[in-house]
């Protein structure tokens, strides 16, 4: 019990430090941004026609006249009180916007995460087991091709083929244009999510498949697989009984680490499909100098990624017999 409490305390401390660091770095980057919030959000022409007081008022709203240290400390104090502040662009509490956007993205992120995980793992195991033969060459070729393709370019390509030429799927957004929110059906939502989710899955597969393949190759060259062969186990039995089992542990780490890549990818992909999710909100906040919203999104997504890694660590304890047996003894 004491051991577990120590573990939890250590993890929490680490998470607090990580979030602090991430927020500080994003804040500094934002400060270094060459974009002037007034010019981007109000416009050169409108600014020119305003009185000195009006401009001063706007500057106060966008926080241009406040020293950076004071701004960051102010934001941090608010966060410690559980207040992430209000978005300057949307004029709503940051948490409310993130909640709304996350609800839109979660379908996308989750499907992409699951599909890329399962598909990547399967392809990796097949390639590793057939090392050097045609399935391996095919899968490896596909993975290398995909990992050298930018996600946004692939998104545009899919958009061109399936939305423009074939007309099977909508071009963008998460619901049909001009439709009453109440009459939007689940099918509508799904058909809008297919292309962005597909793009994210396709790009996510490559990384997981290549890593799984490497691990599978190691397993197939291991002494215990050699001995399994010597004992007369069939190739099928070796792949299913020994291969999968030993690829699973690193697979868990890989799968949960890929959360960060999927979220990162979603920023670009949602932009291409004008999909109103968290990624798109991050881009808007960054370009519009909406400091509270941007910091809120970075901190929340970092927490999600950290949570993913934490789950991987905990699952390790369940799956790895070494850790499990030790826990049972102590």
């Amino acid at each position: 019990m004491k051991h577990r409490l120590q573990f939890a305390a250590k993890k929490l401390l680490r998470m607090a430090l990580l979030l602090l660091g991430v927020s500080l770095v994003s804040f500094l980057l934002m400060c270094a941004s060459p974009l002037d919030p007034l010019q981007t959000n109000v416009g050169q022409v409108a600014l020119g026609s305003m009185s000195q007081e009006q401009v001063a008022q706007l500057e106060a709203y966008w926080g241009v006249d406040t020293p950076p240290v004071q701004r960051y400390v102010g934001w941090l104090l608010g966060v410690l009180h559980g207040d992430l502040g209000s978005s300057l662009l949307y004029r709503q509490p940051v948490l409310a916007i993130i909640g709304q956007r996350l609800a839109g993205s979660v379908l996308l992120l989750l499907t992409a995460w699951i599909i890329s995980g399962i598909l990547g793992m399967t392809l990796g195991v097949i390639a590793g087991a057939c090392r050097g033969q045609w399935p391996d060459k095919l899968i490896r070729g596909y993975c290398l091709l995909i990992s050298s393709t930018p996600a946004f370019w692939l998104a545009i390509l899919l958009l061109l083929i399936f939305a423009v030429w074939l007309g099977w799927l909508p071009v963008g957004l998460s619901v049909p244009i001009g439709m009453d929110a109440a009459s939007v059906t689940l099918t509508d939502r799904l058909s809008h999510a297919v292309l962005p989710a597909l793009t994210l899955s396709i790009t996510g597969v490559a990384n997981i498949a290549l890593h799984t393949r490497e691990k599978m190759v190691d397993v197939m060259e291991s002494d215990y697989v050699l001995f399994a062969k010597a004992r007369g186990e069939s190739m099928r039995s070796i792949v299913l009984r020994h291969g999968l089992r030993n690829v699973l542990l690193p697979g868990i780490t890989l799968q949960f680490a890929s959360i960060s890549e999927i979220i990162g990818g979603s920023v670009l992909v949602e932009q291409v499909f004008s999909y109103p999710g968290l990624g798109q909100a991050a881009v808007t906040a960054g370009l519009g100098s909406d400091l509270p919203l941007l910091l809120g999104i970075t901190v929340i997504t970092s927490a999600i990624v950290f949570g993913g890694n934490l789950i991987a660590d905990l699952l390790y304890g369940v799956v790895d017999p070494k850790i499990r047996r030790r826990a049972a003894k102590g």
Binding site: Y224, F227, A230, G232, R241, H242
Partner: peptide
């Protein structure tokens, strides 16, 4: 024949699957 009529006694414990 291997595993039935011909069998191998390998060097050590790393010839056993560590997770089985």
């Amino acid at each position: 024949l291997r595993g039935r009529e011909i069998s191998l006694i390998p060097q050590g414990v790393n010839y056993l699957d560590p997770l089985m």
